[in-house]
Computed example of a mutant assay.
Amino acid sequence: MGVGEQHVRRAGASDAGTLARLLYEFNTEFDAETDSEPVLAVRFARILASDAVIALLASDGRQETGFALITLRPAIWFDGPVATLDELYVVPASRGHGAGTALLTQARELLRERGCPEMHINVDEVDVDARRFYERHGFVNIEPGVDYRMLCYVGSTGRP
C-alpha cells in the first residue's frame, strides 16, 4: 500500500471494539453525548450480526483511519432496500487523505451489489465540511424538479 493509500474492508463482530473506539472518538471530538466504549462495543457486536447492517473500516496499513456504518431497510419505492449512512468518521490526522472517499466508494459498491438504489445521509446544517464532502460526491438535499430542501425530523418514542 502506498503512502496515503486507503484500504477499506468489511468489519465483522471481531471489530466491535475498534468500531466502538472510533465512534467514541467521533462523539467526543464533537462534544456529542456518548456511551462508553464497552457499551458501544456490545452494541456493535449485536448489530453486526444482522444482514441489514454493514460496517466498513478504513486503514492506511498502520492503523484504522475511519469507519462507516450503514443500515438497510425495506422500501416500497424500489425492489431493493434503502440504505442510511448512519455514521462516517475519519480520524483527524487522516482527513484529506482519501479515507472518507474510500469508505463512501466502497459503501456504494456494496449497496449496488445488494440492489440498493438509494442512500440517505443526515447531516447537521452547521456541519459545513460534511455537507461539502457529501455534495462533492453527488449527494443533494434538493430533489430534481423542486426548489425546497429535504429535512430530517427526530422525535422520541417515549422510551428512555
Rank of each mutant, 00 (worst) to 15 (best):
F26V: 06
I142C: 10
V128Q: 14
A68N: 00
I76G: 06
R21E: 13
D86N: 08
L111G: 07
D124K: 14
V140D: 11
L23A: 13
E109K: 03
D127M: 07
M119R: 09
P74N: 07
A58Y: 00
Q63D: 11
D51W: 04
R62N: 09
I70F: 02
T65C: 06
E64D: 09
V154R: 15
S36L: 05
A11G: 10
L56I: 04
P92F: 03
F78I: 05
P144E: 07
R132E: 13
H137M: 13
C116L: 06
R136S: 15
A11D: 09
G158H: 06
A102P: 11
F26R: 03
R131Q: 06
I54Y: 04
Y148R: 13
H137V: 14
L22N: 03
A99P: 11
S94Q: 12
P92M: 09
V53E: 03
L103E: 02
F139E: 02
G61H: 12
R132M: 01
P160R: 11
T84E: 05
C116I: 09
A55S: 15
L104D: 00
V146A: 11
E25D: 12
G96Y: 10
D31H: 14
V154M: 01
I121S: 00
L22P: 06
G2L: 15
D86L: 07
D129S: 15
H97W: 13
R95K: 03
L40A: 10
C116Q: 10
D124M: 13
A16V: 14
Q106C: 08
L19V: 02
L110K: 04
T105K: 02
F139R: 01
E25H: 09
G4P: 05
E5P: 04
L151Y: 10
N141D: 14
Q106P: 09
R21L: 13
L151M: 03
S36M: 02
L103P: 01
H137L: 14
V3L: 15
A45W: 01
P144Q: 08
V42C: 08
A49M: 09
E87Y: 00
T101H: 12
I121V: 15
R21F: 05
G4I: 13
R112L: 14
V82E: 03
F78E: 06
V39H: 04
G2M: 14
Y148Q: 08
D15V: 04
S50A: 02
E109P: 03
E109S: 07
I142R: 12
S50N: 08
F30S: 09
S36Y: 01
C116T: 15
P38C: 06
L72D: 00
M1I: 13
F133A: 03
L57A: 06
Q63S: 12
D31T: 10
S59H: 05
A49W: 03
N27R: 12
T157S: 15
E29S: 05
H97C: 11
D124A: 11
T71E: 02
R108Q: 12
A45M: 01
V123P: 02
E25M: 11
S36N: 04
D127Q: 00
H97N: 12
R9N: 09
D15R: 05
R10A: 09
L23R: 07
F26K: 00
A102D: 06
D86Y: 00
L104F: 12
R46I: 07
S94P: 04
R112D: 12
G12H: 09
